[in-house]
Design a protein around this nucleic acid. Structure first.
Lengths: 343, 343
DNA sequence: GGTCATTGCGGGAGCGCTCCCACTTTCCGG
DNA sequence: CCGGAAAGTGGGAGCGCTCCCGCAATGACC
């Protein structure tokens, strides 16, 4: 393995100069830099990240902690983050919790992170008090995506508002019996989004003078299968809702499926709206409140990178905009009589 | 930052012993190990991977090169690999090419990989001759998932057979006009699966005495939107096929959508079958040839890890089994007259 | 012509660990 | 009682880089 010394010997200079030249630091003449680059390339020199990390204390690596990569939403964020990290020469260390509590424990507990990465991106999970403690002890930039954590750098959407938009859309179409499919507000992936979306839904109903019915709120676990179950529960009621607002597109897709299985037409018999603008949403003709998923990853990565280079880093709360995307799964309520006909 | 020296001083022993004790090597008395562990914990000692990597030449990290994490298939493989890597204390460095040729170039070219990871997992992309050259120069275990590369360690399914199974299923139901939606056999993600599946389809038709029609083969780019386009093209023909075999579930889902948009009923008017058993397949009632996605990641990771620990590592070709999963999107062909009625 | 930045470069001390080799002690069999 | 193997431990030389400090040469300025 050729090392920096070999290059130094080759161009008859000190390793210090080689290091400077290779990293593009100033204090090296253009001619020297040229020679060093040529020599390094000719000798097939590849720097050792371990050695550089040991000497500099920087690993040029950031950890991304994600609940489940298999969920499109998280994967898309990872992809966004990876793009900007790669651009800047940083590597991405992926920690996939996959609903495994022990995995979560391990990642936070054995803070291997400490000396392994320069920064951490935490996706959509609300770290516990203890975990936050560990994160802050790291002394490294940390950005939390998709959760509201005052005092911490966060990138997210306004979940309350997104839910209000969705609910408002349904209200605007004349619906008043609006079911809600959400997720546990406490759990393995205890992010703050579920509760914010739930209150957004409730507040909007209330503001419109609609009585909010606990019976119309179901748990969809933020998965397609959960949405299917919840959809079945809501739609097989005698006094079934005329519209369903699911707190995520995946649950909305499950609800669509439930409607189909029950022989209900969408949107004639029931309107369905979600949140996310999942990549498959358009194929389901699903009306949704789109959020910039990919972009959140980019912004978060940009943020920690800025913290790493610029000196004055103070946690910033970034809120990205959402947008109602109307497709075919929602429609104005049809008078009872007419609706009957379709069943 | 507390280092190994601090622990050594604390228990009044040499750093060599601390290192041995912490890594669970033999040659340390149980009592000593106990004391070291206690001291390390009390002092909040965290080992430095950079230092260990520099000294040992091992990083306990493996690189996973993936075409696009946002595709469920790849994410699921990553998840499988991550599981076994984490179990064994290895970290996962994610390189997401995301269809960006320059990204691909960068990953392979600037073989930062060399001194950064102990092993490499390459997902579903057929490395070019040049890239293979670089991989072999690494001198590290490399496993390729989802592509057939003689001479290299691979983990995959028998694509030819999977396609044959799907096609055979349709033939068995009486279909003879069977459309095919596949992907470019050369491209950014030039894996070997597309061509193997195509030939599997053709061979099976031929063997059944069915004339294979080039017009019934469309390009779906292995995406939902591509499948939608291809489905439209195939199903809006006057002599449209009575069944469609899509080389991936995502394309099959696109085809289902196309059928719906054209007012065709599935499976009465057209049967659709895919490959993968995508997480959403059951929600679409999609008949498919299931492949062990998650498991492929696990097996591949296990393989490189074995290569890393055991001494005698020689490339092994693992082929995992597939299984036909019959759901509601395929059915026996209905006599022309009866079928008409439904249109 | 002298002073003082500025630029370009070298020397060399670590960074925190691993691993080879050597040393001591204990234990066992002959 | 002795020799030798085995077990437990220490010393210390790196691993390949970064970065601080120092030095020389050059140029600008009064």
């Amino acid at each position: 393995m050729t090392s920096i010394k070999d290059v130094a010997r080759d161009v008859e200079m000190s390793t210090a100069t080689i290091s400077r030249a290779l990293r593009g630091l100033q204090g090296v003449s253009a001619e020297t830099r040229e020679r060093v680059l040529e020599s390094a390339h000719r000798l097939g020199y590849v720097p050792s990240p371990s050695a550089a990390g040991l000497a500099s204390g920087q690993t040029r690596t950031v950890a991304v902690i994600v609940p489940r990569v298999t969920q499109w939403f998280f994967a898309a964020i990872v992809q966004g983050a990876e793009e900007v990290l790669r651009e800047r020469g940083y590597d991405l260390l992926l920690y996939n919790l996959a609903g495994d509590a022990s995995a979560r424990h391990r990642v936070f507990e054995t803070s291997l992170l400490t000396k392994r990465v320069d920064a951490v991106l935490v996706l959509s999970l609300k770290p516990s008090v203890d975990e936050l403690q560990r994160l802050s002890v790291l002394g490294r930039p940390v950005t939390i995506i998709g959760a509201d954590m005052p005092g911490w750098a966060t990138v997210r959407i306004d979940d309350h508002e997104a839910a209000a938009t969705a609910t408002g859309h349904l209200l605007g179409l004349g619906h008043t019996r609006i079911g809600y499919i959400g997720g546990a507000t406490e759990g393995v992936l205890d992010f703050t989004a579920p509760s914010a979306r739930l209150t957004g839904y409730r507040c909007t109903l209330e503001r419109a003078g609609v009585q909010h019915e606990p019976d119309l709120e179901a748990d969809g676990e933020f998965t397609v299968s959960g949405g299917l179950r919840a959809g079945h529960a809501l739609l097989s009621r005698a006094d079934r809702p005329t519209a369903i607002f699911a707190a995520s597109d995946e649950m909305a897709i499950g609800a669509l499926r439930a409607a189909r299985e029950l022989g209900l037409r969408v949107p004639e018999d029931v309107s369905v709206i979600g949140i996310d603008d999942h990549e498959m949403a358009s194929y389901f003709d699903l009306t949704t409140v789109a959020q910039p998923v990919h972009e959140q990853g980019r912004v978060a990565a940009t943020q920690v990178l800025a913290a790493l280079t610029g000196g004055d880093w103070r946690p910033e709360q970034v809120i990205l905009p959402t947008e109602l995307v109307v497709r075919g799964s929602t429609a104005a309520i049809v008078p009872r009589r007419a609706r009957r006909r379709g069943r």
